[in-house]
Simulated scan of single mutants.
Amino acid sequence: MKKLIFKLLAITLVVSFTSCNEEYKDDNDDTLADRTTVAYFAESGSTLFVKEEEVGKLDVLVSVSEAKPYDRSFAVSIDASATTAVAGGFDYEDLNLSNLVVPANAQYGSFTVTAGDFNNSTVQGVNLVFNLDDVQDATLDYRLTHTVKIQRFCPIYAPFAGEYFIEEITPIGADGPVLNHQSVVTLYTLPGSETKRAFMTNNFPNFCATPNQFVIDLVCEEILMPVGGNRGNCVCDQGTPYLFGTAPTPTTFDPNDDSVFEVSFENDVTGNCGPSVITTYRFTKQ
């Protein structure tokens, strides 16, 4: 009787292991081809700089969550209602958006945007907006538009990086200095950007002690705030963001000399704590 029980247990275990092995699949080509893939733009936006003596090119990436063992076509279109850039070599060269593919065994496909005439470009820039319309054997989700900002680029020869003594040179209000007044900060280049610099500072140090990144944009001899402004982390009204925006008359800089420069910005764009004012800081390299 015991022998019979052991035999039945052995048969049951063999059947169980066989069933599991039949359900399990390796990541071979067949199973990869069967998986559901999600497709989206790799980024929501990018900047194509227009340079005076160089043809500017930018690759826009379409990402898929799973590689497949075959080429997959994808389709994009220009969103005419949101686009301010002009084709035909004015802001950008005419695009060939046919026969776009995500190559076999890859997780990215791409298409190239080529900048137009430098003389037509502006510091403010124009937008070229793309919609992701279809990717073969994939579900579209998450990030389905991509904005290429086409903007004039002016060379910056000095590094504008390292340690700087900063001081608020406009009158300091009742709430005290806006940033770390009369202190040394480290200015660094933001990864992936030729023009943006950043440093860590408190916002209203008399009230808030958590450092926050503050970004400046060195664009054709003017110092601007990033698009959308710098978001402050010391607020009066939790319902609205505290923003530092570009001043109506931006301060200027010498691209060859980073020893001393001034940064003006609109303090409290949204009126979070009261009417906005223009604040200026002087940066002196140490």
Rank of each mutant, 00 (worst) to 15 (best):
N105Y: 14
L4N: 06
D34C: 08
D91W: 09
P248G: 12
C236S: 11
L128H: 05
F160G: 02
N105E: 11
T147K: 13
N28C: 08
D30C: 02
T249I: 10
V184W: 06
D258S: 08
Y108F: 15
L95H: 11
T18N: 06
V178C: 04
V178W: 02
Q107S: 15
T201K: 01
P248R: 02
I5C: 07
N180E: 15
S183M: 07
T147C: 07
T246P: 09
L224R: 09
G56F: 13
G271P: 07
D79W: 04
Y92I: 10
L95D: 03
G274V: 01
F253M: 08
S63N: 11
N131Q: 14
A198L: 00
V38A: 15
L218K: 05
T31I: 12
F160A: 06
A75F: 04
T18H: 06
V101W: 07
P255K: 12
T249D: 06
D268L: 10
V60G: 08
N28H: 03
C220M: 06
V184F: 08
G88R: 07
V126H: 04
T122I: 02
T139I: 14
D27L: 15
V260Y: 08
N119W: 02
A198T: 00
Y92S: 06
S19W: 07
V178S: 09
D117Y: 06
N120F: 07
V219E: 11
E52T: 09
T145H: 03
T279A: 13
I169N: 09
V235S: 12
I216F: 00
P69C: 07
V135K: 01
K51H: 09
